[in-house]
Design a binder for these strands. Structure first.
Lengths: 110, 110
DNA sequence: ATCATTTGATTACTTTATGTAACTAAGTTT
DNA sequence: AAACTTAGTTACATAAAGTAATCAAATGAT
């Protein structure tokens, strides 16, 4: 048998990044601390899924959540060191996309 | 409004890589030409989804499909130039995972 | 005091994606 | 003709994601 020879760490990283929105959330946070609604409107994710993703990223120690008790409450999300360490991944994808992805053939057939 | 300012090419790349299995399929093909059943057993993907993924990757000119009319038929899948150009993405993820991902805490509670 | 407002979230419900397992097609051996 | 092999497909079940309404906490307006 030549079964699962894929490194578990790599597989875990892939399964994280293969979740819809995860990479985009991190990419947005590379721009700096942001709030829930800011992330939501910048990438067009639903509140429900954003909530899920942020919870998981917090658990993975990729995102840090800070509550500022003013009114209405402000909650700031930012990247941890581990989160920032993912920047090369996003940049590599960014570079590749510029070199190889053809723009969406905008079929503006009226 | 500070709406969708994300580059369409980048978004397209992300949406491709955010599909479950896509990155692993490409990663496997970095090892060289492989057949349907080989990919299937190496990463544990269902035939149905692998079929979908390979079709999309073919459309995106990332994967090449070659039919060898012997019996039983052999169908070889390999990366195109565009496919190979994604290697840095996978390597960057691989490197990051080695440095930052903690191995699955194997809860072997008897 | 009550009501509306704001942010960050959750819940109920619908739609889409994925998993599972049985099945098909073509060619060959038995 | 029946069995076997590879590369799929199909029908059905489960999981994930989208949508919209709703909640909680704090506060200012009435």
């Amino acid at each position: 048998m030549t079964q699962p020879t894929i490194c578990p760490k790599f597989e875990k990283a892939i399964s994280l990044l293969s979740q819809r929105w995860t990479a985009l959330v991190i990419y947005q946070l590379l721009l700096g601390t942001q709030r829930f609604s800011g992330i939501q409107s910048s990438i067009g994710i639903s509140g429900k899924v954003l909530s899920d993703r942020l919870k998981e990223l917090e658990q993975q120690d990729i995102v840090k959540r800070v509550v500022i008790p003013v009114t209405p409450v402000i909650i700031e999300y930012s990247l941890t060191d581990k989160g920032h360490s993912m920047e090369p991944i996003l940049r590599t994808i960014e570079n590749w996309s510029q070199a190889w992805v053809e723009p969406e053939s905008e079929l503006s057939a009226d």
